[in-house]
Amino acid sequence: MELTVYLAGQIHDDWRGEVKKLAKERDLPLHFVGPQENHDRSDNIGEDIMGEQPNKVFRDDAASSVNNFRTQVLLQKSDAVIALFGEKYKQWNTAMDASAAIQLGKPLILVRPDSLVHPLKELSNQANVTVESIEQALDVLAYIYE
């Protein structure tokens, strides 16, 4: 049984690649989806589809509507969600995706460092499982197959 896992979180480093590598090493039957990882493509998609916008506000609005559509489709098709909160980047997209997963009734694994326990306490309380590393998140998914 292959599960589809949505990887929610920032796109500025290769944490998704690490998750995929570790899952492959463990021979876990997981298929991963997530947000558009090409930052320029994500920022430009609205204008690429709808044409040049009159200013940056409209440009961002057009891009966010297309990105939100993509996220909603992929979240709905996913069996589970891993939402990673890290130390370095602002985490608005991660919080939005985690909240959407909760609203859709998707099982959610929240990954957050010890330093973010307090600011994420409400979201952590709504997640199915909260862990501190991607290795622990994969341990949770591996437990499904035992």
Rank of each mutant, 00 (worst) to 15 (best):
A80S: 02
E132Y: 07
E87F: 04
E25Q: 12
T130P: 03
V129M: 11
P119A: 00
K56H: 12
Y6Q: 10
P113S: 01
A80F: 07
I109T: 00
G105R: 08
A98Y: 04
K24L: 02
G51F: 05
E52H: 08
D43W: 12
Y145N: 06
Q76T: 11
Q53R: 13
K121M: 15
D13Q: 05
V19H: 03
R59Q: 12
I82C: 02
V73I: 13
S124L: 09
D48Y: 12
G51P: 03
R16P: 09
V33G: 04
R26G: 01
H12A: 14
K88L: 09
Q72V: 10
D40L: 14
F85K: 03
E47Y: 05
S65E: 14
N55C: 07
F32V: 00
E135H: 04
F85I: 03
V131N: 01
D97W: 06
D60F: 11
L28Q: 06
L116G: 08
G86F: 04
L7H: 01
D97N: 08
N44D: 13
D27C: 06
N125P: 06
S115W: 11
T71L: 15
E87C: 03
E87I: 03
A101M: 08
V111F: 03
G46P: 07
I49G: 06
H31L: 10
H118D: 15
A63W: 02
S64A: 12
P119R: 01
A83I: 01
H31V: 10
K56M: 14
V5F: 09
G51I: 05
A127L: 10
A101E: 11
V33F: 02
V57L: 14
S133E: 05
D79C: 05
A127Y: 05
G34R: 04
A83E: 03
V73M: 13
P54R: 09
E135I: 08
Y145G: 06
K77N: 12
T71W: 12
M96N: 13
Y145S: 07
